[in-house]
Amino acid sequence: MIQVQNLRFTYPNAQIQAIKGVDFQVAQGEIFGFLGPSGAGKSTTQRIVIGLLKGYQGSVQVMGEEVREAKSSFYEKIGVSFELPNLYSKFTALENLRFFGSLYSGKTQDPLQLLQRVGLADAANQPVAKFSKGMKMRLNFCRALLNNPDILFLDEPTSGLDPVNGKNIKNIIQEQQQLGKTIFLTTHNMTVADELCHRVAFIVDGQISLINSPTNLKVSKGEKKVRVEYGKDGASEEREFALAGLADNQEFIQLLRSKSVQTIHTQEATLEEIFIAETGRNLV
C-alpha cells in the first residue's frame, strides 16, 4: 500500500536535509508504527506520504500512485488524524462531522454511529468548545474514519485519553486492521506501538535506523533468561534461569515446587530500551 524508496527532502532555504534517504514499505492490512523523537523527521515523512509536501526526491507510492502527482481524489481514499484537536469550536460534534463528510464525493459513514462507537453519542449536539481534550481527540478520530478510508494515518491517537477510552480507540484500530485497512501510526508511546503494531520503524535525524516487529526486537535484543520472584521468610527473593533447557532445569523446577512464587518474567527488552540502545536518544 505504501512504498517509499530513497526518500530525501530539504525544506526551502534549509541547509540540512530533513529526510536523508528513507526506505520502507507498508503492506495492506498492516499496522506500521513510525517512532522517533521530536524533530527526527516523523512529521515531515508523514506530510510527504499524505501528499502535502511535493518537492521531495526519490519515490513515494501510495496505492500505486506517486504522491507527488496525486490529485484531490487521493484524499477520498485516506484518513488522517493529527495529534492536536482540529475542529470548529462553535459547531457541534455532529455539525463538524456532517461538514467534513460533505467534502467527499463517495459514500461516507453515518456520523451518529461513529460518535456512538467512541462514546460521544450523548454529546453529538454539543458545541465542540465545551468538549474536554479527550472528547476532541475522539471526535478527531471519528473524522478520520468518515470516508471509510483504505489507509489511516494516525498521529498519537490515544494522546489525552483516559485508559478506558484509550483502550476503546485501540480496539477500533484493530477492528479496522481486521477489515483489511492499512494503518500508519506515528507515536512516542511505546506501549501503544508495542500493543498495536505489526512492525515498527525507528527514525532519528532523518534516517531509519531499524525496522522490525516489536516481538522480534524484544526477543533478539533481550536477555534469554527468566526471572522468578518468590517469598522467603516474609521477604521477597529472586533468581534468574537461562531460557535454554528450562524444562529440564532441576533447580528451576525445585524452586517452583518448594517456594511461594510471586512472579515469573522473561527478560526481553522493552521497545523503549531498544530504541535508546539503537539510536542513543530518548523518545521525547
Binding site: 477520498e76 493529527f82 484537536p85 475542529l87 470548529y88 469550536s89 467534513f100 467534502l103 467527499y104 478527531n140
Partner: peptide, 14 residues
C-alpha cells in the same frame, strides 16, 4: 487557533 486546516486539507477540498 482551532487547527481546522489540519482537518480540512486532508479531505478532497482543494
Amino acid at each position: 487557533e482551532q487547527n481546522t486546516y489540519d482537518a480540512l486539507f486532508v479531505t478532497p477540498i482543494t
